[in-house]
């Protein structure tokens, strides 16, 4: 296989993947059917996994499929299905304009940062740009050449998975971010369990008692103020059923 042919195949595959990503992404933001939007988002993720494969990082491609398609998009679909009526009513996206504006702003910022246009900004007035522009030329942003380099791109080393794993537990590399994310995930898990845990019968009874007391106090206060309570105190069963689920 000649070198030029390899380039052609890669370019062809890249174009297919990029079109899939862009097309499905546009569909996601333009369709009014939220469920189809979520499904198209899965196609977008799949296209990105394909781009990872083209970049020779199989690990990230597979992780993309496992985490984004297998978990996150499923969660999104669940959120879509559980928040709007399950049957009959098709969920609609009513915030298309806001989403389009946000996406446009993000795209503009990305183009500014990573695009070929060199823009000179007054960092004194916009200190946020010092984060991205680095120390080399704090007043210039962007100006990254988009033309591919002439020399061939070096292949991924065979041991990149092991290297990646080691870099996560290396104090000089990514140990701190790794631990921070692990801590964050732990906290989120504990919080989710705390919110969703099944309440013990004693707690449910206590809740019911307190709620009844509050309702009685409120009614008493209203009676003293000379008004009739317009809301009846909660029936016993209602409190119990909300507490149990």
């Amino acid at each position: 296989m000649t070198n030029s042919e390899i380039m052609t195949i890669h370019q062809a595959l890249f174009i297919v993947m990029a079109l899939a990503v862009l097309g499905s992404a546009i569909f996601v933001v333009t369709t009014s059917n939220l469920f189809r939007a979520a499904l198209m988002l899965i196609l977008t993720f799949f296209g990105i996994a394909g781009l990872f494969v083209l970049l020779d990082i199989g690990l990230f491609a597979v992780a993309q499929v496992l985490i984004y398609i297998g978990a996150i998009s499923i969660l999104i679909i669940f959120a879509v299905m559980l928040t709007r009526g399950m049957q009959g009513m098709v969920p609609r996206n009513s915030q298309a304009v806001a989403a389009a504006v946000t996406a446009g702003i993000i795209f503009a910022v990305l183009l500014l940062l990573f695009g070929p246009f060199r823009v000179t900004v007054d960092v004194a007035r916009w200190p946020v740009f010092s984060l991205f522009a680095g120390n080399a030329s704090p007043r210039d942003v962007g100006g990254i050449a988009w033309t591919p380099p002439n020399q061939p791109i070096p292949a991924m080393p065979e041991t990149y998975i092991a290297d990646f794993g080691r870099s996560l537990v290396d104090g000089n590399q990514y140990l701190l971010p790794f631990l921070l994310i692990a801590f964050l995930v732990d906290v989120v898990l504990a919080g989710a369990i705390f919110i969703a845990r099944q309440r013990r019968p004693a707690e449910i009874i206590e809740d019911r008692r307190r709620q009844a007391e509050e309702a009685a106090e409120e009614a008493e206060a209203m009676r003293q103020a000379g008004m009739t309570p317009d809301v009846a105190p909660l029936p016993e069963g209602a409190v119990a059923s909300t507490a149990e689920h």
Partner: peptide, 19 residues
């Protein structure tokens, strides 16, 4: 070189189809 991981990822893909 990520064979095992790939198999599990593809298994999770069928969730999408069932949904």
């Amino acid at each position: 070189n990520v064979g095992v991981f790939y198999i599990i990822a593809m298994g999770s893909g069928s969730i999408v189809a069932i949904i």
